[in-house]
């Protein structure tokens, strides 16, 4: 299967959505007796914002973990850029241009904000141990080049003032933003966001929404995000997958999903009662 660009289209707000970059085929993931994901298939197109929604325990995070190579499904296939992906370790998946943030913030607490974001570029740093030990020359040049890119991300997310702060000292909302910065520093082709706005106040949510839209718009980054706030999902996403008890119960544009009876029963009904 080659990259399908025949049915690429332009959205209302003028962004071009391309062909399929990632396709999950009949994924089933079990933990002992618990079936976290039951025979789910869906695709992600180039340049789109794809939301995954569903009640607690539906299997959304598990799905991102399958994409990250952190969980290995018992059945099903993951296709990336038109090729079936062999079983991979998470660091190999990262090297393919997939970056992510976590539902529970997973920053490196003992390091500064700057160092945390610099770790996002580790897969691109090529100097060997000996060159790094000597420092002068290749290692130093590389460090400065990557620092320059990281500074762009820092400017983009407006976190200049906290550059040198140890992340442990930051408030929750800023930690979420630094985690996004670390993922963006990797210049991913596919960005996975697990509840990027959980626990934020309205203002912080607006900021974060703006950043997500800007990332997608300015860098053309494909984004898959999990979010519980329906308003945000409806505003941001091009297409939505709805999961419930490990099964897919809906897939389509926000409007289609909103009017899907199964979805209303399983999810929206609960959320709005």
């Amino acid at each position: 299967m080659s990259l399908d660009t025949t049915d690429s289209y332009v959205t209302e707000d003028g962004r071009t959505i391309g062909g399929v970059v990632m396709e999950m085929k009949n994924i089933t993931l079990r933990f002992g007796g618990v079936v976290a994901i039951k025979d789910i298939s869906f695709d992600i197109r180039e340049g789109e914002i794809r939301a995954i929604i569903g009640p607690n325990g539906a299997g959304k995070s598990s799905m991102l973990n399958v994409i990250s190579g952190f969980y290995h499904p018992q059945e099903g296939e993951v296709w990336f850029h038109g090729r079936k992906r062999p079983s991979m370790k998470p660091y190999q998946v990262a090297a393919q241009g997939i970056a992510r943030t976590f539902q529970n913030i997973a920053l490196f607490d003992g390091m500064s904000v700057l160092d945390n974001i610099m770790t996002g570029r580790l897969t691109m740093m090529k100097s060997n141990m000996l060159q790094q030990a000597i420092w002068f020359g290749r290692a130093e040049r590389e460090e400065n080049q990557h620092r320059e890119q990281v500074e762009k991300v820092i400017d983009f997310l407006e976190i200049q003032a906290i550059r040198k702060t140890p992340v442990g000292r930051l408030p929750y909302g800023l930690k979420k933003r630094v985690e996004l910065a670390r993922a963006l520093a990797a210049e991913p082709k596919l960005l996975l966001l697990d509840e990027p706005m959980a626990g934020m106040n309205v203002e912080e949510k607006e900021d974060m929404s703006r950043f997500i839209l800007d990332v997608n718009d300015e860098f053309g980054t494909t984004i898959a995000l999990i979010e519980h706030d329906m308003g945000v999902v409806m505003d941001l996403s091009d297409r939505v997958v709805v999961m419930d008890y490990g099964k897919k119960i809906g897939d389509g544009t926000p409007d289609e999903v909103r009017n899907n009876q199964d979805v209303i029963d399983a999810y929206l009904g609960v959320a709005h009662d």
């Binding site: 990250s68 998470p90 990262a94 090297a95 976590f102 997973a106 490196f108 607490d109 670390r182 993922a183």
Partner: peptide, 10 residues
Amino acid sequence: DMDIAAEIIG
């Protein structure tokens, strides 16, 4: 600091 996150970022 966090080995799982380290592996996922590469």
